[in-house]
Nucleic acid binder design. Sequence first.
DNA 1: GTTCCGATTTTCT
DNA 2: GAAAATCGGAACA
Length: 204
Amino acid sequence: MLVGSVVLFKKWPIDGGFYARSTVTVAREILGMMLVRRIGEGVLAGRIVEVEAYRGADDPASHAYRGRTMRNEVMFGAPGCAYVYFTYGNHYCLNIVTEEMGVAAAVLIRAVEPLIGVEVMMRNRSVSDLLNVASGPGKLTKAFQITREDNGCDLADPSSSLTVHEPSNPVEFQVVQTTRVGIRVARDLPWRFYIQGNLHVSRR
DNA sequence: GTTCCGATTTTCT
DNA sequence: GAAAATCGGAACA
């Protein structure tokens, strides 16, 4: 993909096998990857800068902790699929399903650094401050026009309108590992990861 | 800067 | 009926 003369991400999405591993490993390694949204002829893209791992039966903070429901069933399905849920009566949140088929787990995408289609994202969010466009799980879904319709979408399928790609020119960064945000149980588990020093991280 | 509160779906008690 | 993987605005300091 070209922006001016700068190539930002590889043509093919990350293979589905990338997600069929330990959730915490996937969470850590997906930092720096590019989230890509195709809307008609246009493209929105940004760098994933903050994530959290949510496991299943062994993680009290996970939606899958008490088993399968209508809402969380894609968490039990194929790795690499999007789990999008509606919460607090207002917001959507984007997760990527991990682990083998049948094992409930996912990585919550908490923040993205907008890089392509920035003006469209700012319009979607009704804000003009770039640091407020996608610096939170509810914010980034609105910026990227992600809704319930994207639930179950395969992020490793090149024909999907929502995909994840390796950056063309990876940049070195340090990863900070800490506790998760916005939960009341299992607050001690250090399953939140973000890129050190990145200004788009939701909270530091 | 901080804290409090309303928005109002989905799930669980 | 209450809490939740959140956000933005109002009130206060």
